[in-house]
């Protein structure tokens, strides 16, 4: 029974990773860059929800919606100011800029909100589900997290397959220049990708903080890096890959924490990343990229 409850916790954490990983994987697929600041957008989303909900007493729903709006705007702004001018620059320059943005958000939050830990109240008020005569308890947060993850995955897949904007995204990720020649507005598509990724980050952040209710300016960076690991694990650029990678990573982390050592759980997750990259650098569902000479 213990194992089962660990497994469920793992799936719940994995669902959060999967939602964050979506942001990484979409941006990586289209802009071919690792958006280091994604994790910190999550943190900003959490602070917005925290301030409106716990301080102003808002209902959770408008609070989460507001944080989504703020994060979306933030994502677009970051893209416009920091990444867009570097579209033709060497990858190293883009990577350093992304690290700079991440660092900027963390330290700006540190100055604005302070370094003290805020205790986040869960946005989910659903009662816990008791199964097998109370031997197995599934918290409301877990249920909402898993459901949200599935809904987001399905909606995003449909969006990409069925809408014009989604098809434009696919085209840009395939070949930016060819897409432009076909009349796709590349800049708008990239902005849209950042907007969707950042909006999802807000949801992921709120769900993460509902499960682990401590909020500091550094809250976002670790889940962010782990979610990137999940995206790589599942195959970067692939939406089902993000789901599979996220959930597997969540399960590995929780089981590692339970059965090996709680202090080593991060090390285990990162060891998984290194092994995956060495054995199958394209991830589980990734496509192999040919290198052009």
């Amino acid at each position: 029974m213990n194992f089962l409850s660990y497994l469920i916790n793992g799936i719940s954490l994995g669902s959060v990773y999967a939602i964050i990983a979506l942001g990484y994987t979409m941006v990586y697929g289209i802009a071919k860059m690792l958006n280091f600041a994604h994790g910190d957008v999550i943190m900003v989303g959490c602070y917005v929800t925290f301030l409106t909900m716990s301080r102003q007493g808002w209902h959770p729903l408008p609070a989460v919606l507001l944080s989504m709006v703020v994060c979306t705007a933030l994502g677009i702004t970051i893209e416009k100011i920091a990444y867009k001018p570097l579209r033709r620059a060497i990858p190293l320059a883009v990577l350093i800029t992304a690290i700079g943005v991440s660092y900027f958000l963390q330290n700006a939050a540190l100055l604005i909100f302070g370094a003290d830990t805020k205790s986040f109240t869960s946005v989910v008020t659903l009662p816990a589900l008791k199964l097998a005569d109370g031997a197995l308890t599934i918290s409301g947060t877990t249920i909402v997290t898993v459901v949200a993850c599935i809904v987001i995955m399905v909606a995003l897949s449909l969006f990409i397959k069925k809408t014009k904007a989604g098809q434009a995204m696919l085209a840009v990720s395939e070949d930016k220049d060819a897409a432009q020649l076909m009349g796709v507005n590349v800049n708008a598509t990239i902005s849209l990708t950042f907007a969707i990724g950042s909006g999802l980050a807000a949801i992921a952040g709120v769900l993460f903080c509902s499960a682990y209710p401590t909020l500091t300016p550094y809250t976002g960076s670790m889940p962010g890096i782990k979610a990137f690991t999940a995206a790589v694990f599942g195959g970067i650029g692939s939406i089902p890959g993000a789901l599979i990678g996220g959930i597997l990573l969540g399960i590995i982390e929780i089981l590692g924490r339970a059965y090996i050592s709680s202090q080593l759980s991060d090390a285990i997750v990162f060891a998984v990343l290194i092994i995956v990259l060495l054995v199958k650098p394209t991830g589980i569902l990734g496509k192999k990229m040919q290198e052009k000479v």
Partner: peptide
């Protein structure tokens, strides 16, 4: 970090 990269690479 950001300013140096933009200064060096932005068109």
């Amino acid at each position: 970090l950001i300013a140096m990269m933009l200064f060096n690479w932005a068109p």
